[in-house]
């Protein structure tokens, strides 16, 4: 194996940062050149420098909106994760409940958010848009946590169950000391998906339900589109992307920290 292939097989942090940064910089340079040379109208595709300028000039408003979207996402993620884990525990304990409620749960996932948003808005009241956005985002976020945690709870080794049975462990001890830790890799994978979905849910819900007292990034994009302010749209999208990457990175870090000592997925083998 050559030095370069070896480096790519186990890329150090500097390489993992440098490669996407260099690729992004080249992409921006080409983009800037194409628009400046007049091949594309700046109204359709603003230059990266125009987007950066808009971002700089309206940093206060845009960062405030980013913060609002972030708060809704975190709240939806927290509600979705807790509800997802609790539901998975209940389903794993009661086959009757699993069979009765699971189809309804799937229904909430196959029905698009845009279709149920007006209904949720009616239920919580049109003056409670923030609550509607939170509920819609949480509905999208909880499913992968439930599905993955259930799979994890069912995957516990029978021998370990036997061990707990012989030692006369209570149901609570079995859950806390065996099942939940064994399901943790699955739950964390579900939560990683839920983080991204909570953000998508928060944005889509704001598009559909409108903005409450605290306008998020979806509102900024919508507002800029109505004014044909494409630099602002790109600036908002850039912040949205940054938020998504940040949330995903943070959840990957949590996953790594929780699993690094024992789970195969987090362990790099010596060669």
């Amino acid at each position: 194996m050559s030095d370069w292939s070896y480096l790519l097989a186990r890329p150090p942090l500097w390489l993992r940062t440098a490669l996407p940064t260099a690729f992004f910089a080249i992409l921006l340079a080409i983009w800037e050149a194409v628009v400046r040379l007049g091949h594309v109208s700046p109204l359709i595709l603003p230059t990266p420098s125009a987007v950066a300028s808009d971002l700089w000039l309206h940093a206060g408003t845009l960062l405030w909106s980013t913060w609002n979207t972030f708060v809704v996402t975190v709240e939806a993620f927290a509600i979705g994760s807790v509800a997802g884990i609790v539901l998975a525990i209940l389903f794993s304990r009661s086959r009757l409940l699993d069979l009765s409620v699971s189809p309804l749960m799937v229904l909430t996932q196959v029905t698009p958010t845009v279709a149920i948003a007006p209904l949720v808005l009616v239920w919580v009241g049109v003056d409670n848009v923030n609550a509607a956005i939170l509920i819609l985002a949480a509905i999208i976020a909880f499913f992968p946590v439930t599905a993955n945690t259930m799979m994890g709870l069912k995957s516990v080794s029978h021998d370990l169950h036997d061990l707990f049975t012989v030692r006369r462990a209570s149901s609570w001890q079995r859950l806390v000391l065996l099942e939940l830790p064994a399901a943790m890799p699955y739950t964390l994978s579900g939560m990683k998906l839920a983080g991204g979905l909570a953000l998508v849910g928060a944005v889509v819900a704001e598009f559909v339900a409108g903005s409450g007292t605290d306008a998020g990034l979806a509102w900024r994009i919508s507002e800029a589109a109505n004014r044909l302010n494409t630099p602002r749209m790109f600036a908002s999208l850039f912040l949205l992307g940054l938020l998504g990457v940040g949330i995903s990175g943070l959840l990957s870090l949590v996953q790594y920290l929780c699993l690094r000592r024992w789970h195969e997925a987090a362990i790099v083998r010596d060669r």
């Binding site: 021998d159 061990l163 012989v166 030692r167 000391l177 065996l178 024992w262």
Partner: peptide
């Protein structure tokens, strides 16, 4: 006490 065929330790 039971010692199964595999060590079946809690990996975490």
């Amino acid at each position: 006490a039971l010692v199964p065929q595999e060590p079946t330790l809690l990996p975490w």
